[in-house]
């Protein structure tokens, strides 16, 4: 019984980490659009290249944040959550007995 519960818990942690990384889609699209717009701007005004590039990198790094939230959740779910949850599970089983 405990083994089954542990297996379900570990599997769902992995599935949850996978779902959390869907958050990477948004910033991917957003940064792609930002870079496309920056390329267009540089093509129109090549003399403003350094300004456009620094602004774009800055904006990209900020747009990345939402993706990083997902990544943090994923990493926590894989490396941290199983330890915590298995402890909780063991305590619950011990309390039931």
């Amino acid at each position: 019984m405990v083994e089954l519960a542990m297996g379900i818990m570990l599997g769902l942690c992995g599935v949850g980490a996978g779902i959390a990384l869907i958050a990477g889609i948004g910033p991917g699209i957003g940064e792609g659009q930002a870079v496309a717009a920056a390329c267009e701007a540089i093509g129109r005004q090549p003399e403003a290249k350094s300004d456009v590039t620094s602004t774009m990198v800055m904006g990209c790094a900020i747009a990345e944040t939402t993706g990083l939230y997902g990544l943090i959740i994923g990493i926590l779910l894989i490396f941290v959550a199983p330890g915590i949850y298995s402890g909780v599970l063991r305590d619950t089983v011990a309390a039931l007995k």
Partner: peptide
């Protein structure tokens, strides 16, 4: 929250 997680997330995820 967003400032803390942005910085921490970038560095930590790079290390991982």
């Amino acid at each position: 929250v967003s400032m803390a997680f942005r910085h921490y997330g970038n560095v930590m995820s790079g290390a991982v």
